[in-house]
Structure formats: C-alpha cells, structure tokens
Design a protein around this nucleic acid. Structure first.
Length: 372
RNA sequence: GCUGGAGUCGUCUAGUGGCAAUGACAAGAGACUGUAAAUCUCUCGCGCUUCGCGCUUCGUUGGUUCGAGUCCAACCUCCAGCA
C-alpha cells in the first residue's frame, strides 16, 4: 500500500508526504506534465533545478512511441528519461475523450494512431499491463470521459469507468503479485472519480472508487475551476482521508491550485504552464502576459523581480521578447522554466501557507493581485 | 545608344477587361487546463454610423472602353545582352 503521511489538516486541505519507491512528494505538489516522457522544452536537470518533485507521462503516447516494451527494456520510465524522482502515468483514458475516430465498446477502446493510422486497442487490462511495463510509481485506472455535458452521457461514462475500475483493480492485483514474486519495486493504482458537474454523480463515483480500496484517487473530467469547490467538497468528503488525491489535468490557472488544495487535493498536473510558455504567455504575480507584445521590446526588467528561476534571475523581458520574435529555441526553454517554476513554487507556497495557518490570507492576497 | 525583360500592400508574389486586388513572410493582437499544440484564430490601403458605406490605390502621364493592375502611346526607373 502506498504510504501517505498527513502532517497537517485545515478543513479539507492537508499537507502531507507521499512516499514512493523513487522518493517523497511533499504535498500539495504540482506534477510536471511529461506526456511523452519529457517535459516539453525542458531537460530533467532543469526540472530538478526549478523544484519539480514528480512528473506524469501518458500511457497512450508511450504505447504509440516508443512502445512500452522499449521503456521496460530501458529499465522503466525513470531510468529511460533520467528522472530519478517519483513518476506517474496517466492511463490513456483521457484520449478516448480527446481524439476523434475512437470506437468505444464495453470491452475496449479502438483507435487509429494519430501518427501513422495503425490500429490500436486498449482495454482496462492492457492499460494496466502497459503502465506496469512503463513502470511509473503511480498509475491511473483506465477511465472514460463523457462525450457531452449531458447527464445521461455523464452517468453512462461514470458507470463504465466503474466497471472498468473493477477490471483495472483485478488486473493490477495480478501484476502486483507477479512483481512481488520477482522482488520488483511496488507500483500503485489510483482509481479515477468521474461524474462531471453533477454532484450526485460525483458522490456516487467517489463512494464507488473508495469501496475498491485503491492506493489513491484521481479526480478526472474537470475542465474549469467554476463549480470545482463544491464538487471537490463533495468528492473529498467521501474519499478516505488517508489516501492521496490527484486532480487530473488542472493547474493552468493559479485559482485551480488554490481551490484544489483548499478542498483536499494533494497533487496536480497540467499541460497548460508549458504549453503557454511555448506560445509566449507567461505567468507573473499580476497575471499572465504575452511576452511577444510590442510593448516589451525595450523592457529591460526581468519578467518577475521576485522570482528565483533561471529565467528571471538572468534575463530581461526585452531579451525574451527578442527570442520569441526570432523564434529561437531558447525562448521556449526559458519561458517553460519560468512557467513551470511558477506553478511548482505557487503550489509549494500554498503548502507552506497551510503549515503556517496562513492559507486563507495567502490565497486572498495572491488571487486579488493575479486576477486584478 | 540599340535589343529584350521587368515595375502590384513593409518584403517577395498571384493577377491577361468586372479588382481594394491572391498567397507567403513580416507586423499587430487573442486563445490555450489528465498535450495529434514549436499549435490555432483574428486584423493587416485610408476613413466611417464597420454583417455595410465612402474615398484613394498596381512606376508616371495620357488614351481606348460602360468598365483598365490587365489593352494602346509616350516618358521614368531597374535588370540582361550588344555597342
């Protein structure tokens, strides 16, 4: 069983430590999105230096390329990409939702590779097997997102997610038993709570997921912070306190992190910070700015004067502006360092503020300035 | 000086009688939440009461025509070849 120590509680919010075979994660924590076993534009050294504690890769993408066998051959995800800290994998379930031309049946999901059109099929069992081969510390159950916001669709998707969870749990147990027999390191399974914006469905899903006694929980199908507080309150009041909860895909907006932490989530992952960095949208305490805007041409001040990331300590906005306008690779590197550092450090500060009994004050001050 | 070719938005370019005029780049702005994203969208002659209207534009000046970036003439500039 995955070890999770809670140091402090404040309402639903908590500060804790997740102990994985690859080290500890002090929570709340922002997990870097490393979909294809890399955080786009960043080296693992840079990820380390900006303070990242963990990364999350995607099973779907790794099945397509390079194939999970290759990662297994490399000695697992951490060895393969040289990230010697905790790792997560997402199940590939999200791609059911996000890719076109996907055929979903009770048994499996069939799709064509977006790369070469080759036919693929994922089942809950094969997702578990793939994740064990990839070898991340924490796996997500193979879930199903609804095709619309319609309650009927939500309910159907949720129930399928639950049935698939049964299969994931069973398959995971087999794989865990085999690993134990072979004296291989442990890997852990998070069940994924669905139910969309319907709190009765969320409650039902949380109860079902909790009843399966997984190592932790993913909360999926969330796309905006609107209504997230109520939803998380519902879900996290039901989920067992002593297990970690990961809010899947949220964290592009600082508000997501504050709401998520306040209402009991321990880890977050989001592609937003690095994607926006590559597109020139950079975080500051006063909101996001587009560094490509002409007004930064002659701005020889750092992006943030009170940021200790490599980008802000060494470079000016004028320089970043120039790098973006000339489409230099370094533009994306520096911007990604900054944005990733921003969300990682904000989450770290949220952690500290809870420890200091200062969360509400920190939240109020931060959000008032950021969303002025 | 002669012969041939060319002059269209900041740049390169499409255009062979119905055109404020194609595409790309540049420029200006916006979007992005478990990454088919180093992506995508919008604006880009000027002015307005901006799902429209008016004005001025394709080297210059004239001409033919209901209508000219497109046809004709002269001139200017550039390129190539010959002197």
């Amino acid at each position: 069983m995955l070890k999770f120590d809670i140091e402090k509680r404040e309402g639903l919010a908590r500060v804790g430590v997740i102990h994985t075979p690859h080290g500890d994660i002090k929570t709340p924590a922002f997990v870097g999105a490393a979909t294809r076993a890399t955080v786009k534009a960043l080296t693992m050294k840079e990820m380390n230096e900006l303070g990242s504690q963990a990364i999350l890769a995607n099973t779907y993408h790794l099945i397509l390329r390079p194939g999970v066998e290759l990662i297994q051959e490399a000695g697992g995800l951490a060895e393969f990409c040289s990230w010697h800290k905790p790792t997560f994998t997402d199940s590939g379930g999200f791609q059911i939702f996000s890719l076109p031309d996907v055929k979903i049946t009770e048994e499996s999901v069939k799709f064509k590779s977006h790369i070469d059109g080759a036919n693929f099929e994922i089942t809950p069992e094969s997702s578990m097997q793939a994740q064990w081969a990839i070898g991340a510390d924490i796996h997500m159950a193979f879930d199903h997102l609804a095709k619309s916001e319609d309650k009927k669709d939500m309910e159907e998707a949720m129930h399928r997610t639950h049935r698939w969870l049964d299969r994931c749990v069973e398959e995971n147990q087999k794989l865990a038993n085999t690993a134990k027999k072979n004296h291989e390191k442990e890997q852990y399974l998070y069940a994924v709570v669905q139910g969309g914006t319907f709190n009765d469905l969320r409650a039902e899903s949380a109860e079902y997921c909790a009843s399966k006694n997984p190592d932790g929980f993913g909360i999926g199908g969330v796309f905006t912070a609107e209504g997230m507080d109520v939803m998380l309150k519902t879900v996290n009041s039901i989920l067992p306190e002593d297990k970690p909860r990961h809010l899947l895909g949220m964290g592009q907006e600082p508000l997501d992190l504050f709401i998520g932490a306040e209402f009991g989530c321990d880890t977050f992952d989001c592609v937003g910070p690095t994607r926006m960095a590559r597109n020139g949208s950079l975080y500051t305490y006063d909101g996001r700015i587009n560094i490509k805007n002409a007004k930064y041409t002659h701005d020889f001040t750092p992006l943030m004067s009170d940021c200790d990331c490599e980008c802000c300590k060494n470079y000016t906005k004028a320089y970043l502006h120039h790098l973006f306008k000339t489409d230099e690779i370094t533009a994306k590197v520096l911007a990604s360092i900054h944005n990733e550092h921003f969300v990682v450090s904000v989450t770290d500060k949220i952690r500290q503020s809870i420890l200091d009994d200062n969360f509400q004050n920190y939240k109020k001050t931060f959000l008032a300035r950021y969303y002025h």
